[in-house]
């Protein structure tokens, strides 16, 4: 395993991350840590950026260390590296954006147990060079972010009539706000709809 590198063109890595292996509607992975904050686009955006960066940077680090890491402690090393980057994000948020840090509550820390991060480190970074690992992590994270941001936009618009806190025409004035969208059940319903849509498209494409 050590030293072997599987070459995969950058374009393929990007497409896989965004669609073909999309973590959410392909594998239903890693929704826990972010779904809870999708009732607000800004919170989701910050979570998604953090997650993408953590995935990319831990992928890169795991990959850079792959030739020295003994196999027996592989998982521990990965967890340690992921936790390292998550703590950096947490410290920076607390120091420079305290309100956001409070809004996200425990969810920043939960990036550690997000299956996507660990999954990319294990499946890709362990056998690839640092730069492709970085790309792979970044675009897996972005594929995930696109889906969650769509969910968040939908929930915030229908539930509060705003997007990123800005009042939207029609929705902020004439729309009878669907409070349920801001509450937890809304998250489940919208995610289910997104899954349904993406999977139906995929089934069509295959047949």
């Amino acid at each position: 395993m050590n030293g072997q590198t599987v070459t995969k063109p950058a374009k393929q890595i990007i497409l896989d991350g965004l669609w073909y292996d999309n973590a959410i509607f392909r594998q239903i992975l890693g929704i826990c840590s972010t779904l809870a904050v999708t009732n607000n686009v800004l919170n989701t955006l910050v979570m998604c950026i953090s997650l993408s960066l953590v995935t990319a940077l831990s992928g890169m680090t795991v990959s850079a260390l792959r030739n020295w890491t003994p196999r027996s402690v592989r998982m521990m090393v990965q967890t340690l590296i992921i936790a390292f980057f998550v703590i950096i994000v947490d410290i920076l948020l607390r120091a420079y954006w305290p309100e956001m840090s409070r809004n996200l509550g425990p969810y920043v820390g939960l990036i550690i147990t997000n299956c996507i991060v660990m999954g990319r480190c294990e499946a890709f970074a362990g056998t690839n060079r640092p730069w492709p690992s970085f790309l792979d992590g970044l675009f897996s994270g972005l594929g995930y972010s696109v889906v969650l941001l769509a969910i968040a936009a939908f929930r915030e618009l229908l539930g509060m009539g705003t997007i990123l806190g800005f009042a939207m025409p029609y929705f902020s004035t004439h729309w009878d706000k669907w409070i349920i969208m801001v509450m937890p059940p809304g998250g489940f319903f919208v995610l289910a709809m997104v899954l349904w849509l993406c999977r139906s498209v995929e089934i069509k494409r295959k047949s």
């Binding site: 489940f188 995610l191 289910a192 899954l195 349904w196 999977r199 089934i203």
Partner: peptide, 11 residues
């Protein structure tokens, strides 16, 4: 078909 498995679980 598109709703089978995870989709319906979430609903």
């Amino acid at each position: 078909a598109g709703l089978r498995g995870p989709g319906i679980t979430l609903i």
